[in-house]
């Protein structure tokens, strides 16, 4: 018996319309010869479904250009989807347009920590103002209540109160990361989206921030959607992972199982590319070729086909669907490995 998930994303798609190819004259000639044509579309996120349970941390991994950021921005309701639904605690969020979402009561429930806190915090705001801003706008706090809440949040995030009057450029990388996190959790969201929160940090600081995130989750009972390209970090923090390739989820399952027994050839290659001093050079797997174009992809061809070591004729005839084995470990591949027996 599964409890109702906090976040339920179903068949979500985002397509961007591109400018048609060729000069206006060439387009006119094509149109006269072949009739009206549809503008090319970039399929950034294509029919993606997943859930996040209460108190669960779900990792999202994939190469640059795979649609991670678009998916995250869709879930954070910063951009509108073309199709599909996003339900938070049973409530549909896609009815309200992204531009109006900031004024809905649901805004406080989904908050986001951006990649580089140095770039994402207003340089004219002190740490205090940066943390106070969402409390003023979304909770309507002011005066002593506001000050008390900002100080409580800063303390919770391990930010010394004497740093609150400082501006972002007067803080170290780790302190900035703490401000970025404090700002997002000050309004007590139910879902926190973390977009590469430690990518700009040194390893010594990274550990502190990861441990802080773990502590905050325990104390506040939030769910995390954690985006990272560092698979070792994802494995440390996440209960489940989603592996994305060219707008589609190709593998999902418990983090430990996905990393120890990957089922999809792409996940296998991704893990094999991690540096490992103990692995002989002969066992290194390399993905040949470049990532395929996301512009109007063939709906009946597996997206990974050009780089896949297992690709055969069937991969060009039918798109593999995400199929789970008995332990809830799913892969979208005609030749998926069985995975770890449950």
């Amino acid at each position: 018996m599964k409890p109702e998930p906090l976040l339920d994303v179903a068949e979500l798609s985002k397509r961007y319309v591109l400018k048609p190819q060729g000069s206006p004259v060439a387009r006119l000639v094509r149109r006269l010869k072949k009739g009206p044509e549809a503008a090319p579309r970039l399929h950034a996120v294509d029919d993606v479904s997943f859930t996040i349970g209460r108190g669960e941390t779900v990792g999202l991994v994939g190469e640059s250009g795979c649609g991670k950021s678009t998916l995250v921005r869709l879930v954070a309701r910063l951009i509108d989807a073309n199709d599909g639904s996003i339900r938070l605690a049973g409530q549909e969020l896609t009815h309200r347009r992204a531009r109006d979402f900031a004024t809905t009561p649901e805004r406080v429930k989904i908050q986001m920590v951006f990649q580089d806190a140095g770039e994402s915090i207003n340089p004219r705001f002190s740490a205090f103002e940066a943390i106070a801003d969402p409390l003023k706008r979304l909770r309507g706090l002011g005066g002593d209540a506001l000050r008390a809440k900002v100080e409580e949040t800063a303390t919770r995030c391990g930010l010394p109160l004497e740093l609150l009057p400082r501006f972002s450029h007067q803080l170290s990388g780790g302190q900035r990361a703490r401000v970025g996190i404090a700002r997002a959790i000050s309004v007590e969201p139910e879902l926190l989206i973390l977009d590469e929160p430690t990518a700009a940090l040194d390893v010594s600081v990274q550990v502190v921030i990861l441990q802080l995130l773990e502590k905050l989750k325990r104390e506040l009972g939030m769910s995390y959607l954690f985006v990272s390209h560092d698979l070792n970090v994802v494995r440390l923090l996440c209960d489940r992972v989603l592996v994305m390739y060219l707008g589609k989820i190709v593998e999902t399952g418990p983090a430990e199982t996905v990393f120890s027994h990957p089922r999809h050839p792409y996940t296998k290659a991704l893990i094999a590319a991690l540096p490992d001093a103990n692995r002989p050079a002969s066992e290194r797997v390399r993905l040949a070729g470049e990532i395929a174009s996301p512009v109007d992809p063939d709906p009946n061809t597996c997206r990974f086909v050009g780089r896949c070591p297992l690709a055969r004729a069937e991969c060009r005839e039918a798109m593999p669907i995400l199929e789970a084995n008995s332990s809830g470990h799913a892969a979208a591949c005609h030749f998926a490995l069985p995975g770890k027996a449950s």
């Binding site: 390893v203 550990v207 990861l210 070792n232 970090v233 494995r235 440390l236």
Partner: peptide, 18 residues
């Protein structure tokens, strides 16, 4: 200290040292 702070393929969050 640097080695103890770097996440490896088998490390746990509680093992990593700051």
């Amino acid at each position: 200290a640097l080695i103890a702070a770097t996440p490896g393929p088998t490390s746990q969050l509680s093992d990593l040292r700051t």
